[in-house]
Nucleic acid binder design. Structure first.
Length: 421
RNA sequence: GGUGAGGUGGCUGAGUGGUCGAAAGCAGCGCUUUGCUAAAGCGCCGUACUCCAAAAGGGUACCGAGGGUUCGAAUCCCUCCCUCACCGCCA
């Protein structure tokens, strides 16, 4: 959520920065400012009336105490109450409306991002490893040949967009998860969390999935609880509504959870195999920091995610996303894309973002700074990494046509063998 | 699911209709004194919104949340949420 003061003070530059995103927010900003003006006006009037009413009520108290008659004043105050009722209701309504509108405004892209309307304008800022030649066998073929997964039966029990790992394939997924969590906790200092995957609506608003993207989410109980589309939601909200002490920042959490996404509107895109699914596992990295720490923490978070791909010998590139391609709540994002030879394409396996105080404002997450002032925290997160696409790249990179899957050395102790098949 | 007890400021904890935003203690901050790895005394010490060009200073709201009663609610009534204890059921 943006600071309403920023909108009041410099609406023009807010609009200009939002204009670099896809979508048009100019009218929404005007609407918010109009609402804000009306809200403040009615609030001020209510407050003046209440002040007067409070004053008279106290006078009545004094009269009663001394045994004098107060019926005249009482009648007067009663008149006040009626007048206030409508005004008070209006002020409350306008306040809710303003928040509601404000929740629909995305974060401002950080200054200095590459400008562009869509992914075309993203900038590759780093390449690691040498993308291998195309593999005629893709992960579906390899997985079925080696007996690692069964997409047909997954569809039978759940529909399309689900995977059923079997035998060695299930064991491999488990080995990957343990490898990833151990890496992030032991080598990179994250605290492991095992959160619920069903959360309240407020959490989804806090991180920015709601109210805008409700149709992409699995909701229950009339929209009061949701399956999390990413552990970002549950984990970032752990400290919602809290005031942290500066000394405990930065906080670094990691969690592996199933993620649930309707993927509404993506039908037909990348639907073969396990590129895009309704349920998948993901290791998430989350940081809560001071504003000063955030920029450096984004770099290290991205490096923490990259380490996964390096240790698994999977070539990848890092993209800096342009203004039109960063997520709704993000102000700056690096995408990690792993090379998948069976696809002949790069696959996004991690999206590392700095949200500024945008999420913190939504979830009222603050810390007490050195001067004793309450400040909004900054939040960051990134995948470390998504499991299915990592799995895809692993299979397609480390399997020769017709051959076994050769496990990268760091993964071998977790799986308990050097190869599969 | 049943029964019972509760939810007050960073924490502990008073307060059952009237100057209560809320006693007291602890923690924190400032000053003073004595001195030494601390003690004592004094003062300050919630949040949000809003008025004012700003500061200073006003005002309003907030005692789990939302409604209600009343001239006036932390205090009374209703609904909901949550916590704890015991019972039942259960992976």
């Amino acid at each position: 959520m943006l600071d309403i003061r920023l909108l009041r003070e410099d609406a023009a530059s807010v609009k200009a920065r939002l204009a670099t995103r896809s979508g048009n927010y100019s009218d929404l900003i005007d609407q918010i400012l109009a609402c804000d003006a009306r809200r403040r006006e009615s609030e001020t009037r209510v407050q003046h009336l209440r002040a007067e009413k409070n004053r008279l009520s106290k006078e009545i108290g004094g009269l009663k105490k001394s045994g004098s008659d107060s019926s005249e004043l009482e009648a007067q105050v009663k008149g006040f109450s009626n007048e206030m009722e409508d005004l008070g209701r209006l002020a409350t309504e306008l306040d809710a409306e303003q928040r509601n509108l404000l929740l629909q405004v995305p974060n401002l892209p950080a200054p200095g991002l590459p400008e562009g309307r869509d992914a075309e304008a993203n900038v590759a800022i780093k390449h690691w490893g040498e993308p291998g030649p195309a593999n005629p066998e893709d992960h579906v073929a390899i997985g079925e040949r080696l007996g690692l997964l069964d997409l047909e039966r997954a569809a039978k029990i759940s529909g399309s967009g689900y995977v059923l790992f079997t035998g060695a394939g299930a064991r491999l997924e488990r080995a990957l998860i343990n490898f990833l969590l151990d890496l992030q906790t032991r080598s990179h200092g994250y605290t492991e969390i095992a959160p619920p995957v069903l959360v309240r609506r407020e959490c989804m608003e806090g991180t920015g999935q709601l109210p805008k993207f409700e149709e992409d989410m699995y909701g229950f109980d009339g929209g009061n609880s949701f399956l999390t589309p990413t552990a970002e939601v549950s984990v970032t909200n752990i400290r919602r509504d809290e005031i942290l002490s500066e000394s405990e920042l930065p906080l670094k959490y990691t969690a592996c959870t199933p993620c649930f996404r309707r993927e509404a509107g993506s039908a037909g895109r990348e639907t073969r195999g396990m590129i895009r699914m309704h349920q998948f596992d993901k290791v998430e990295l989350v940081k809560i920091t001071t504003p000063e720490q955030a920029a450096a923490e984004l770099e290290s978070l991205t490096a923490d995610a990259e380490k996964v791909l390096q240790l698994l010998s999977l070539p990848y590139r890092v993209l800096e996303l342009c203004t039109g391609d960063i997520g709704f709540s993000s102000q700056r994002t690096y995408d990690l894309e792993v090379w998948a030879p069976g696809q002949g394409a790069y696959l996004e396996v991690s999206s590392c973002s700095h949200f500024g105080d945008y999420q913190a404002r939504r979830m009222n997450l603050r810390y007490k700074d050195a001067n004793g002032k309450n400040q909004f925290c900054h939040t960051l997160n990134g995948s470390g990494t998504a499991l299915p696409r990592l799995y895809v790249a692993l299979l397609e990179t480390h399997t020769k046509p017709g051959g076994p899957l050769i496990l990268p050395e760091p993964l071998q102790p977790y799986y308990g063998a050097a190869q599969i098949g």
